[in-house]
């Protein structure tokens, strides 16, 4: 099996890809290789994404303790312009604007669909399933860089108070000093070994926007909108999936992400076996 993998890596020939394979094959213990970081499962607290209300009035989303079922293998860095350019060259990713200078910067100006096209392409290329992280997974990997912003508690009879409070909170965040994507690694490494978390590039997740009612002590999803996905970074926000360049203005009062990019998780459930299955599948097809 090892030989099969080596052949495969050689066939792909892309330097970017080999470390990904190595990482996914590594034992689930905490191990850091270039492409992906394998994070051992440990419990963490998570503020659920979405709009929560009780008796028709907005309330803070519940804070949960999450115990991941297994380890998480996630890219150490955001997908770069160079990597995305290869996917474009293969005709598998929609064309987006490439930076004028070095391509060793996160790809930005990508929609949720673009990110998924890349995930499908890299999965095909490597034989290893890649996908966008869920919001829970992103929060786990972001660790201390994840921002828990609960809605301030205000008089529910006055809708303007919550509105003004949220506006103030967003304004207080400020904006990144530079909007232009910076070379990978510019925003440091977090406690879990991930680079550039909550820098000036926000990341798409696979989590859909939900509206949840907490009436009568029961939690009930009243609406799920998968046309809008959770976007994570220096603050959490929700974006329509085809947006590439976030903006505010007009009626939309708030602070938008500076840039939209992404990083992927690698399915590490029995990675070797999953790979083996895929390899067999490939041979069968051919």
């Amino acid at each position: 099996m090892l030989i099969v993998l080596k052949l495969k890596a050689a066939a792909i020939g892309a330097a970017v890809i080999a470390p990904l394979l190595a990482a996914s094959l590594a034992p689930p213990a905490a191990s850091t290789v270039d492409g992906t970081v394998s994070l051992p499962a440990s419990s963490f607290s998570y503020r659920t994404a979405g709009d929560f209300s009780r008796d028709g009035k907005p309330v803070a989303a519940p804070l949960r303790n999450i115990h991941p079922a297994g380890d998480l293998a996630i890219m150490k860095s955001q997908v770069t312009a160079a990597a995305y350019a290869q996917c474009m060259a293969d005709g598998a990713c929609p064309r987006v604007t490439m930076p004028a200078g070095s391509l060793d910067v996160p790809v930005v100006g990508v929609s949720w669909h673009d990110a998924n096209a890349y995930a499908a392409w890299i999965s095909r290329k490597t034989g290893i399933p890649h996908r966008l992280p869920t919001d829970e997974e992103w929060t786990f990997a972001a660790a201390e860089k994840a921002r828990d912003e609960a809605l301030p508690l205000v008089d529910p009879a006055d809708p303007a108070l919550a509105w003004i409070a949220r506006y103030d909170a967003e304004a207080a965040r400020g904006r990144p000093a530079v909007a232009k994507p910076q070379p990978t690694g510019s925003f440091g490494i977090n406690s879990k070994g991930l680079a550039d978390v909550a820098g000036n590039v926000w990341e798409w997740t696979s989590t859909c926007f939900v509206r949840v009612s907490l009436d009568a002590g029961t939690e009930r999803i009243t609406n799920t909108n998968c046309g809008v996905r959770v976007v994570e970074g220096a603050h959490r926000t929700y974006m329509t999936d085809f947006v590439r360049d976030p903006r505010t203005g007009g009626c939309a009062a708030g602070v938008p992400p500076a840039n939209l990019g992404f990083r992927l998780v690698v399915e590490n459930r029995w990675p070797a076996i999953a790979l083996f299955e895929r390899a067999i599948g490939r041979f069968r097809r051919s």
Binding site: D158, P159, A160, L161, W163, I164, Y167, D168, R247, T248, G249, G250, C251, A252, A253
Partner: peptide, 27 residues
């Protein structure tokens, strides 16, 4: 009425895409 008001050039393309937007925070 309190809240956040947007004061815009109501060619909304100019307001949103080109920048002609102000906000007024009314308490």
């Amino acid at each position: 009425e309190p809240g956040i008001y947007a004061y815009v050039n109501h060619n909304l393309i100019e307001a949103v895409e080109l920048g002609a937007t102000a906000h007024i925070k009314v308490e």
